[in-house]
Simulated scan of single mutants.
Amino acid sequence: MKHLLLPCLLLAATPALAQKPASETEAVKRTIQTFFEGMRKGDSTMVRATLAPGAVFHTISTKSGQTQLRPENPAGFVKMVGTPHKEVYDERITFDKVLIDANLASVWTPYEFYVGSTFSHCGYNSFQLVKLAEGWRIAHVIDTRRKEKCK
């Protein structure tokens, strides 16, 4: 009888496992997907809702053969997204790596950026997210930008 107790307990726990909420990895991905969905829709409210207070944006570029780190203004980005424009801003990403420890997530996403159907540039994004009371929010984004050698 003792030998049957453990299998019965494991089977009884199976339904509880099936009802487990979405994984933290999926929740992190959803935040980033919402950020880009808001950008495509021109919905600044949607984009702003994905950002942590004090979020920081940077871009890495090369000018005259010199690598430069340029700060980007998150408020300016949100305003640009919400300002009416003819073409859709479409950043197409894939999730390469998602790393999570407690309330910190680090996400690496190769991307291609299109204005309407016209290719603009490509590179990689590195997102740092923090889990706040409202859920996962983007605290820092840094990206590379180039026009060739994509992926």
Rank of each mutant, 00 (worst) to 15 (best):
K2Q: 14
K2G: 13
H3C: 14
H3S: 13
H3Q: 08
L5T: 14
L5G: 08
P7L: 09
P7Q: 12
L9N: 07
L9P: 06
L10P: 13
T14K: 02
P15H: 12
A16D: 04
L17M: 11
A18H: 15
Q19A: 12
K20H: 13
K20G: 11
P21F: 05
S23P: 09
E24L: 11
V28S: 03
R30L: 13
R30M: 10
T31D: 09
I32K: 04
G38R: 15
G42I: 15
D43A: 05
M46H: 00
V47A: 09
R48A: 08
R48H: 02
A49R: 11
T50S: 03
A52K: 04
P53R: 11
P53Y: 04
H58M: 02
S61Y: 01
S64H: 14
G65C: 07
Q66C: 04
L69A: 03
P71M: 03
E72Q: 09
N73T: 03
A75V: 05
G76R: 06
G76Q: 12
K79H: 09
K79A: 13
M80G: 05
M80W: 14
V81N: 01
V81R: 01
G82Y: 10
T83W: 02
H85A: 14
K86W: 00
K86E: 09
E87C: 11
E87F: 04
V88S: 00
V88F: 01
V88N: 00
Y89Q: 06
E91C: 04
E91T: 12
T94W: 08
F95N: 06
F95Q: 11
K97I: 06
V98T: 15
L104R: 10
A105D: 12
P110D: 06
P110H: 03
Y111N: 04
E112W: 05
Y114L: 13
G116W: 15
C122P: 07
G123K: 02
G123E: 09
N125V: 01
N125P: 03
Q128G: 01
V130I: 12
V130D: 14
L132M: 10
W136P: 09
A139W: 10
D143M: 00
T144L: 09
R145N: 10
R145M: 02
R146Q: 05
K151D: 14
